[in-house]
Design a protein around this nucleic acid. Structure first.
Lengths: 168, 168
DNA sequence: TATTGTTATACTCTATAACTATA
DNA sequence: TATAGTTATAGAGTATAACAATA
């Protein structure tokens, strides 16, 4: 279709590869720490963190949890079931909409989160932030936040035209 | 041990979360494209790219391939076997060291790589680089490259003290 | 003895599609 | 009819440990 194949130049390639490798290594390091310190996968940690840190009430609907954490609903059901079996969250039908399920972090969940957080923080600090000054960190955040917003808003088009959560 | 739990401040948290989400969304988009355009996983693409683009000869030892692409040797054996079965690489014992296995990209492997690359590039350009100016891209690369080098050199210590490729 | 690579095994996680129930 | 969530199923990928072969 497009007759001008837009190559990535050297600077872009370097940025792309560095981004993917840094994120990959960081995730790997963090996953090890979470597993050893609290027997949590990264996704499970993200769910607990969203409920325990981001949410004022400690509760969220499954659908809202799915956004941003996981790519399919069944994956969320699977992880939520694991967390519930471990006693770290509770699931109950919503009062306003009987179709919805509200997930709530339990005291045990908050305790697990608190147990894991210092080590988690420590890994991120040592691996990611040690070579970055405060100005660097601000600059990094300033560069990546718009990219994140752009990605959330713009699902892949030409080369990967599928939508993420809808059927065709 | 440490009596000063070093929290991450808001700027660091923002940078950390943005990094992980950007890399996660990008990898997801890229994996879809690679699967649809060439039936390749991201790891398989990385292996082909290293052999076909980075290596002058098109060949590398298994051990050298493992470094930077994969976290365990068995995972590399698994992926290399898949690529070989698909005819995209060939494996042969090294002449200099009979223990080593040299992996070489085939013509079919180069063709597959060429078939996949334009779409891959297009996804990365649209998803990652569209909101970034050239100066932004340079800055991003300048920030992340030192972090990558730091991570390669400094395996996780206190909180996750295991080494990556050695036994205890 | 140390290194290179493979294999057997078991496990985690994910996506697809079919399904139930409520709005 | 559309939305929320679950389940069954099947597949991809990984790590661990034991193993064989060579340096």
């Amino acid at each position: 279709m497009a007759d001008t194949p837009p190559r990535l130049d050297d600077v872009q390639l370097e940025a792309y590869f560095a981004l993917m490798e840094v994120a990959g290594l960081l995730r790997h390091a963090v996953e090890q720490q979470l597993r050893e310190a609290g027997d949590l996968s990264y996704v499970q940690f993200q769910l607990l963190a969203r409920l325990g840190l981001d949410s004022a009430t400690g509760s969220e609907r499954m659908t809202d949890l799915a956004d941003g954490v996981v790519y399919s609903r069944s994956a969320l059901t699977y992880q939520a079931a694991l967390l519930e079996k471990a006693g770290l969250v509770a699931r109950a039908p919503s009062e306003h909409d009987e179709r919805s399920v509200v997930v709530t972090i339990t005291d045990a969940g908050r305790a697990r989160l608190a147990a894991v957080l210092p080590g988690h923080t420590e890994v991120v600090r040592q691996q990611l932030f040690q070579p970055l000054s405060r100005a660097d960190t601000k600059a990094l955040s300033g560069l990546l936040s718009p990219v994140r917003d752009h990605m959330r808003a713009a699902p892949p088009r030409s080369a990967a035209p599928r939508r993420r959560k809808d059927q065709d």
